[in-house]
Design a protein around this nucleic acid. Structure first.
Lengths: 225, 225
DNA sequence: CCACAGGTTAACTTATCATTAAGTCTAAGT
DNA sequence: ACTTAGACTTAATGATAAGTTAACCTGTGG
């Protein structure tokens, strides 16, 4: 099996640092995206949905802490790993960073080896909830191949339909609020009407022919066979 | 509901360090267990099943790295958080530590504040997958799944009913004034009639079939089995 | 036996979801 | 560039569940 490469976004205003980290992370098999200031980091984070975001605390436009706060406020980045990077060995910043919801904190000057080890350690812990093939009863969802099977019957879902179903099926039984669904599937900035979700739910139910999505009125939807 | 305290095991041969960390962690509400060497750490870890283990790298009997390896080899400790602690700011050790499967690595001298932040950050990440499920006797309230169970029987409550029951069940025994309930469940600005709460209480009692809500005349309601 | 607080019930109002049809947009094929 | 099909969104309508109200009932303490 081939594992989809982890995406790492690095945001730092010093080109040297970007280069070094990019080189090292690429060598380890990570897919690296770079940004040179806070705004660019936010924008690229949204577009590329990285698995790990490395933020320099001192950056133009927006500081790393600000970026982190803005990201954590969005449902799509609640789970994303975030590492702070800073030349300042300032205790206050460090605490603030971790309390903002960062997962680690590394001081410059950076030893690439140590840095890589930390990154690997973080991913090791995360590994559990990775993109994988879901099989619930006679229903199979393969996000890698974009295929759904009901028994032996193969069903084709459209992109949004698929993402929606996959989201729900990742945590069977758990209720997803309409807002959560919008954030996860559509993105935080996109504004769509109230009925859009319903229509997609309907199509999924119709195409699958199995009633596996339960409505919880006033709350949201949940996957349940 | 009583929140189960997180258990933290600290292993270090320096009594001062043990004292300082114990003091700080206890203050944060953690339950602290201490060990003064590698063997004792292993033994107490097995006995108490802590949520987090803090290991000094340099310890008598067994080093922190050895302890970590032995722990990780056991299924029961695959998920346990482990932090290394060391006076040696040695890169080699650091890498070895993280590769052994530690989740973080802190160098002495330790700033208690920073240390606490790191601990909290680790737990925060872990917390995600744990829902705030209330279990009182044979009654289970799962806000994530929006499900209530009485014994094995699943009961479906409407949104307001659920919110009301959850509010009361969060602090069993405590009496909630009618006003408190209105504010919490309905919101401060919404104005509803006097009998509205009663009706909802009634429906909950009816649906659950168990009398778990007690009326305190002239005051309010409380959850009680 | 009355007053008061809450319980009960059914009728009423509102919110929310399902369904359908129709419109917009995008990308592939000719 | 034109056509077309599928994906996605929106809007209108209807159904149903949720929430509220009001009128009446019950029980308890003075």
């Amino acid at each position: 099996m081939e594992t989809k490469a982890r995406k790492v976004l690095i945001a730092d205003d010093e080109p040297d640092i970007l280069e070094i980290l990019k080189y090292n992370l690429s060598n380890e098999g990570y897919e690296v995206i770079t940004a040179k200031d806070g705004d660019e980091a936010l924008e690229k984070a949204r577009r590329t949905q990285p698995d790990l975001i490395i933020l320099d605390v001192m950056m133009p436009k927006k500081t790393g802490v600000e970026v982190c706060q803005m990201l954590r406020a969005q449902a799509a980045f609640k789970e994303t790993l975030i590492i702070f990077l800073t030349a300042v060995n300032d205790e206050g910043t460090q605490i603030k960073g971790l309390e903002t919801g960062a997962d680690d904190y590394v001081s410059k000057p950076i030893s690439p080896k140590v840095f890589l080890s930390r990154v690997n350690a973080l991913f090791r812990r995360l590994n559990k909830t990775e993109a994988r093939i879901l099989t619930i009863d006679h229903l199979t969802i393969d996000p890698e191949r974009f295929i759904i099977k009901v028994g032996e019957q193969e069903v084709t879902l459209a992109k949004k339909e698929f993402e929606l179903l996959y989201l729900l099926a990742l945590k069977p039984g758990r209720v997803f609020l309409r807002n959560e669904i919008l954030n996860q599937v559509w993105g935080n900035d996109v504004i769509v009407g109230d009925r859009t979700i319903d229509v997609h739910i309907r199509k999924i139910r119709q195409k699958l022919g199995v009633d596996c999505i339960t409505t919880v009125k006033g709350v949201g939807y949940k996957f349940e066979l």
